[in-house]
């Protein structure tokens, strides 16, 4: 597909999403949630398409994307590993769990493995503090995670 065709396709997809929200600039956060749900991340071209559809400067969209930690401009892995670094998880040893994931997957927090399979990021509390430390892979939540178990968890997805 040529670059122009790709751009055209992005434009069409994004304008459909924006239309669901009546192209209302006040709904930008909801629009970006939905757009990120579709693409997995929000690269520059997509942000520009959103800005054009709702009729605001691209800088405004960029401002929102960079302000809120939920939005990312980097693609995530097929199985995004999110490690909770909230207070409860931290005092229960979440840092050791993070280090273990980093060393097993050979990438750092915020990065994606070369094969695109896993990415690691940290979260601030998903509200399952009673089961700290907590790790999420995709939508699945793992509670009471011990560093020794990390390898087995990764193997579930290999």
């Amino acid at each position: 597909m040529s670059c122009r065709e790709k751009q055209q396709q992005i434009k069409e997809t994004v304008s459909k999403i924006c239309a669901e929200f009546n192209n209302d600039p006040n709904e930008l956060i909801a629009i970006l949630h939905k757009t990120q749900g579709h693409y997995g991340f929000l690269p520059k071209e997509v942000q520009i398409a959103v800005a054009e559809s709702v009729g605001v400067p691209a800088s405004k969209v960029f401002g929102i994307v960079t302000f809120y930690s939920y939005f990312t401009m980097e693609p995530k892995g097929k199985h995004p590993v999110s490690i909770c670094m909230g207070t409860a998880c931290y005092v229960q040893g979440a840092e050791k769990v993070l280090r273990e994931f980093e060393s097993r997957l050979e990438v750092k927090n915020g990065q994606t493995t070369d094969d695109g399979k896993f990415s690691i990021n940290t979260l601030r509390c998903i509200g399952a503090c009673g089961l700290a430390p907590v790790v999420m892979i995709g939508d699945k939540v793992y509670g009471n995670v011990k560093p020794e178990e990390v390898n087995n968890i990764i193997n579930e997805y290999s």
């Binding site: 670094m85 909230g86 207070t87 509390c125 509200g127």
Partner: peptide, 12 residues
């Protein structure tokens, strides 16, 4: 928004 990391009253 339950911002306090380590709290889950509102979620429950």
């Amino acid at each position: 928004d339950e911002g306090d990391p380590g709290a889950f009253m509102d979620r429950s």
